[in-house]
């Protein structure tokens, strides 16, 4: 029975995932223990570790995997197992795992190809050097400072004057319309309502999402019919967001076009805690843009209905 479970094939999956979990879990624990912060998910965790998983797995499979087809299928299977384990042990959200899975798959496959080349040559000096280099990059990357902030801006034209638009910028009633954005359709929460305790500087505002989570906000600029800027004072403890992204500030700018229409601009500032930026910022920008458009389209609809 045990021999069946720990077959050469299964060992490739089991050991590679165990190594990854130990390294990621260990890093998380050490950051929590010594720095009292959850830590940043550095690029190594999505690049070096999946590569390492690929190399470790191919070490077990070096005599049984002979074709690219098999290699690719097993890389897919290993990606799936890694995602399930991340959901169970690291409490990652499903949407996050959907976002991360292409990156995991690619680097697991690259690791397998690298590993295959390494073990075919059977050069111990080369193999040791590769492991030492990967380990060195991981340590250096983990201890480096990672800070990335970005701002996303979107603009639409509303066929109503600024005073009419302003009424719905500060607070708006529930959005009933279904979103067309694929991530919202498969379960990512989207903004549905905004409430404010008043129309004045310093007023507290709440942005309510479809899963019931609430972003607490405070109005920091209140320039009627022109500029509403608010800081996010408290983020929901959603596993899809926590430790991945902080929304820092939001802003609506209204520009009177002088012909009864208004140019409405939505700006959001955020900080990313997941790297590499070249991958995750594409997603962050896309999600932020679709949050903007969902709210701004709703405001447009309400303002133009009057």
């Amino acid at each position: 029975m045990l021999q069946k479970v720990f077959s050469v094939k299964n060992n490739g999956f089991i050991v590679s995932n165990a190594v990854a979990l130990i390294i990621i879990g260990g890093t998380k624990y050490l950051f929590q223990r010594f720095y009292d912060v959850p830590g940043v998910l550095v690029f190594s965790e999505f690049v070096i570790i999946p590569m390492l998983m690929g190399i470790v797995s191919i070490w077990y499979w070096r005599n049984i995997v002979t074709t690219k087809r098999q290699l690719t299928l097993w890389a897919l299977a290993n990606t799936f197992i890694a995602c399930v384990l991340s959901a169970v042990f690291l409490k990652e959200g499903i949407i996050c795992l959907i976002i991360v899975s292409p990156l995991l798959f690619a680097f697991i496959l690259i690791g397998q190809v690298v590993g295959k080349a390494m073990f075919n040559r059977n050069n111990q000096t080369l193999n040791t050097s590769v492991f030492v280099m990967l380990f060195g990059i991981f340590i250096y990357d983990s201890l480096s400072v990672h800070h990335y902030e970005n701002m996303v801006a979107d603009t639409i034209t509303v066929n109503a004057p600024p005073a009419e638009v302003w009424k719905y910028v500060v607070a708006y009633k529930r959005i009933e319309k279904k979103s067309d954005y694929w991530l919202f359709r498969i379960g990512m929460s989207s903004p549905v309502q905004s409430t404010a305790e008043g129309y004045y500087l310093g007023a507290k505002r709440k942005c309510i999402f479809s899963n019931g989570y609430v972003f607490d906000e405070k109005i920091v600029t209140y320039d009627e019919n022109k500029d509403l800027t608010f800081d996010i004072t408290n983020q929901p403890r959603d596993p899809e967001i926590m430790g991945h992204i902080d929304i820092l500030r939001g802003q609506f700018l209204l520009k009177d076009n002088g012909n009864g229409t208004t140019t409405l601009t939505g700006n959001s500032w955020y900080r990313l805690y997941v790297f590499p930026v070249w991958y995750y910022d594409i997603w962050a920008e896309s999600v932020t843009r679709n949050v903007h458009l969902r709210v701004m389209e709703h405001i447009k609809e309400l303002a133009e209905a009057k």
Partner: peptide
């Protein structure tokens, strides 16, 4: 990035023309 792109090409080939991977082997 190019390596990532190529990994997706392999995945695409696996889904659309898996025999091509055997030809490459």
């Amino acid at each position: 990035l190019a390596l990532v792109f190529d990994a997706f090409l392999v995945l695409w080939t696996l889904m659309t023309n898996p025999a091509l991977l055997d030809h490459m082997d």
